[in-house]
């Protein structure tokens, strides 16, 4: 294949990856920004979203698009509820202590993973895309659903921006993020905000899971990759900075896509990790992060 189409395919693959990564990492970044909690179980929420999408698709008969639409709605809600409950039962009781919450979310990771293994089984199960059409370029074919994922991600990121910047809920979240104690002094129920933010973060992860499952397959171990990449994105973008997250997700997604098509996926992972190391050395707060006060 000539260099042009080669690069075109690489860019497409990179953009799809960036799209999914954007949504996942936004959830992680939101949770850290508001709660200062490093949620190691974040990848498992992606997995839960995908698994619930499989259940929805297999219970709803008729056109695959119906099952997919149902999954888009119920998956984030169910996963959000699970996250809400675990925040109330675990994180709140640990007083959001940074070290303790890391250990607790590692525990949560295993609980979720093993529960899914028991209930859903060890198999990877496919979910049909809502529509199936292959776009034929002169050099190769490409699934139109993947392009839909890119569009969906743009819409979702727009919605997140709107909620954070233009609504009262967003204002409250930003206030809690900016200065927890002052926000509390001004009558913001920071404690309840935390629970809702944790649920919203998990819901975003679940949404990413639903979007990705027709491309991959639902599997109980699928949470590891999104977790690692989200951490990379969030560290590069600056913990808690939403715009930084978007820029870093596109950067990592594209570099990963292009490097893995042009060279090898292993090299792509190496470059991402190297980038994290460089950012940590030269800009410890990330490209867009602000120094902790």
């Amino acid at each position: 294949m000539a260099l042009g189409p080669y690069l075109f395919l690489a860019t497409l693959e990179g953009l799809v990856q960036a799209a999914v990564l954007c949504i996942t990492a936004a959830g992680l970044s939101l949770v850290f920004g508001v709660m200062r909690v490093v949620n190691v179980a974040h990848g498992e929420f992606v997995m839960l979203g995908a698994v619930i999408a499989w259940f929805a698709a297999s219970l709803v008969t008729g056109h695959p698009a119906i099952g997919f639409a149902v999954a888009l709605v119920i998956s984030p809600v169910i996963v959000g509820a699970i996250a809400f409950a675990s925040e109330r039962l675990i994180l709140k009781r640990l007083d959001y202590n940074p070290e303790a919450t890391i250990v607790a979310t590692i525990g949560l990771l295993y609980i979720l993973q093993q529960t899914v293994l028991i209930v859903y089984g060890p198999d990877a199960r496919p979910v049909d895309p809502p529509f199936y059409y292959t776009i034929r370029f002169p050099w190769f074919g490409y699934s139109s659903y993947k392009l839909f994922v890119i569009a969906a991600a743009i819409v979702i990121m727009g919605a997140i921006w709107f909620v954070l910047q233009k609504t009262k809920a967003g204002l409250i979240m930003r206030a809690a993020q900016f200065d927890r104690e002052t926000a509390q002094a001004f009558g913001i129920p920071v404690d309840r905000v935390s629970a809702f933010v944790f649920a919203a973060g998990a819901g975003l992860a679940a949404l990413a899971g639903v979007l990705v499952v027709p491309i991959q397959q639902a599997h109980y171990l699928m949470g590891a990759d999104p977790l690692l990449l989200s951490f990379i994105v969030v560290i590069i973008g600056g913990l808690g900075s939403m715009s930084g997250t978007v820029v870093a997700a596109i950067l990592i997604g594209l570099s990963d896509g292009i490097l893995s098509v042009m060279f090898s996926p292993t090299l792509a992972k190496m470059v991402s990790t190297l980038l994290v190391a460089l950012v940590l050395v030269f800009r410890p707060n990330g490209l867009f992060g602000k120094a902790a006060r």
Binding site: A124, P126, Y142, S143
Partner: peptide
């Protein structure tokens, strides 16, 4: 591995 179906589907998409 668990992703074999994805592999074959993507091969089909790609080749036409």
């Amino acid at each position: 591995g668990p992703a074999v179906l994805t592999f074959v589907k993507e091969l089909g998409d790609y080749l036409g």
